[in-house]
């Protein structure tokens, strides 16, 4: 249940071959460097680097476009409101509404940073199985309790999701329609959620017994699963330099998008 995130996991690209721990450090650092950027020139460089990384990853363009659909509603709300509500300099009047330059520039900054970060995150998680990424996080110091919870939750999301689908189908077959808000509807949906929780709770008791029988708590540290080579370290060095370049560039130019266009 990862919405086709592993659809292109078997492609061959430098990002698919990059060892998971180094890739995690390199691309997360780059993502944070992107979130630091406020200068328009650095935004253009950000677009260039993002496009280059995505092309090198060999993931198809349709893949990122498809995934951009999910979170874009929030962005759409900002795009539709900020130019009217934010800023002082009027660039256009539409009836009683004024469009402000500062609001437009803020939307540009938000949209470019958002799309770039989402694209890099997609390269990070679509070129390594999510299971391996979580193990890499554990190897990098994620607390054992968190890693175990994440791995178990990931394992059961799909099954519990299928349970929900079956129960919703049964409800529809029995005539339940959730067209309007009513106490009856809320109670039925609460019972649906409650049944899912009860099933999961009961399943967890069997899972715990099975885990104990398999020696849970005595497994070796997962660091041994990862083996890096010289190329992984060099690639990490390149990405850390790119990230440092973005931060340094933004500090040196020192302009927000608004100041630059004044």
């Amino acid at each position: 249940m990862n919405l086709g995130l592993d659809e292109y996991i078997n492609l061959d690209s430098p990002f698919h071959r990059w060892e998971a721990r180094y890739k995690l450090i390199g691309l997360i650092t780059l993502i944070f460097a992107f979130s630091f950027v406020r200068d328009l020139r650095m935004l253009l460089a950000m677009v260039g680097v993002t496009v280059a990384i995505y092309v090198i990853s060999r993931l198809p363009a349709s893949f990122v476009l498809r995934r951009l659909r999910f979170p874009s509603f929030f962005l759409l709300a900002l795009v539709l409101t900020l130019p009217f509500l934010s800023g002082q300099t009027v660039v256009l009047s539409i009836g009683p509404l004024d469009v402000h330059r500062e609001g437009l520039l803020a939307v540009l900054l938000i949209a470019i940073r958002f799309i770039s970060i989402l694209t890099i995150a997609l390269v990070l998680f679509a070129t390594t199985p999510l299971l391996t990424t979580i193990k890499a996080m554990r190897a990098l110091g994620l607390p054992g309790i968190m890693a175990d919870m994440a791995l178990l939750a990931l394992r059961y999301i799909q099954e519990i999701g299928q349970d929900l689908k079956k129960m919703q189908t049964s409800m529809r077959l029995r005539g339940f329609r959730k067209r309007r808000l009513s106490l009856y509807g809320l109670r039925t949906l609460a019972w649906l959620g409650g049944s899912i929780l009860v099933h999961s709770y009961e399943r967890s008791e069997w899972v715990y017994k099975a885990m104990i029988l398999r020696g849970y708590g005595h497994a070796p540290h997962p660091r041994a699963e990862f083996q890096s080579c010289h190329r992984d370290v060099v690639t990490l060095g390149i990405f850390l330099l790119i990230a440092a370049g973005f931060i340094t560039g933004d500090i040196l130019f020192g302009h927000g998008v608004s100041a630059l266009l004044q």
Partner: peptide
């Protein structure tokens, strides 16, 4: 350790239950 499977499966369950839409 005893609480981890319960917390994990309930985490997965909450994740799934959050897909239920209320009209």
């Amino acid at each position: 350790r005893e609480g981890i499977p319960k917390a994990s499966l309930l985490t997965a369950a909450f994740f799934v239950v959050s897909w239920i839409h209320i009209p």
